[in-house]
Computed example of a mutant assay.
Amino acid sequence: MFHPIDSNHFRASLGRFPSGVTVVTCKQEGQVHGMTASAFVSVSMDPPLVLVSVAKKARMHDKLLNAEEFGISILAQDQAHWSNHFAGKLHTQEPEFTEHEGVPVLEGALVNLVLKTHQRVEAGDHTLFIGEITYARYTEQDALLYFRGKYGQFQPE
């Protein structure tokens, strides 16, 4: 028999799944908005779709609901400070963005994606934002990883 789990146990359990770290961005009324997200996954190759899960209580949620396009920047190993910044622990420097067709993405990221909103799916206390990739740029840097609430790096065998 399965028993429901509380949110702390849920978070601790899934925190044992290592993930990359992304910053989701959009621009509204000339201002760039962003948030850190680790709930990011590839959905489809044809068409090229990815998904990011955003809590309905997050400030970014309503901004994404109104956005027809948004950006996702997969952070490089040396960008933990930007992950913290967009999670609410503001950094002393302001982040630098580059824009592709009006969509802001974080400068210096491992990967920059520009997406056209494809679908929004309500799922519990989150909304799944599925975007079709219209632009992708990547570098050969190493990725910032997140595991058990801490940042780390990949160590190949």
Rank of each mutant, 00 (worst) to 15 (best):
C26K: 00
A39K: 05
L14V: 14
F147S: 08
N112W: 04
T22E: 11
F154W: 14
H81E: 12
G131M: 09
M1F: 13
Q77G: 05
S7M: 12
L106W: 02
D62V: 07
F17W: 15
I74L: 05
A67Y: 06
M45S: 06
A39Y: 03
A37G: 00
H85Y: 01
L106S: 02
H91S: 10
H61L: 07
G102W: 07
P95S: 08
E140L: 14
H81M: 07
H33Y: 15
S38Y: 01
P47C: 04
L113S: 02
A58N: 04
S83M: 06
T98Y: 03
E68P: 00
F86C: 04
L90H: 05
L115Q: 00
G131D: 03
Q141M: 07
G108D: 14
P48D: 02
V21K: 09
R120E: 15
E157N: 01
Q155V: 13
S42A: 10
L128N: 11
A55W: 00
H85I: 00
D78L: 04
D6K: 14
E132G: 03
A123M: 10
Y151D: 15
A37P: 00
A87Q: 10
L110Q: 10
N112E: 13
G152V: 15
N66Y: 03
E140I: 02
R11T: 04
D78P: 02
Q119A: 12
T25G: 08
R137D: 14
Q28Y: 02
F86H: 06
G152H: 14
L65G: 07
G131R: 00
S73K: 05
Q141V: 05
H81D: 11
K116M: 04
D62Y: 13
E94S: 15
V50G: 00
Q77D: 13
G102L: 09
H61P: 08
A109M: 05
I133Y: 01
G102D: 02
W82S: 00
E69W: 13
I133D: 01
N84D: 12
M60K: 05
E157W: 02
E94H: 12
E157P: 01
S38N: 09
E99T: 01
A39E: 02
S13T: 15
M60D: 08
M60A: 11
E94F: 06
V24S: 00
C26F: 11
H33G: 09
G108K: 12
S13H: 07
E96T: 13
L65A: 08
E29F: 10
V111E: 07
Y151G: 04
S38P: 03
I5M: 13
S83H: 05
L64F: 07
T25L: 07
V114A: 10
G149P: 03
R11Y: 14
R16G: 15
K150D: 06
M45N: 07
G20R: 08
I72H: 00
H9V: 13
H9N: 12
T127W: 04
D125I: 12
T22L: 08
N66E: 11
K57H: 06
L106E: 09
H85Q: 04
E101Y: 02
K63D: 06
D46I: 04
G88R: 05
S38W: 01
G152R: 13
A39M: 05
F86T: 00
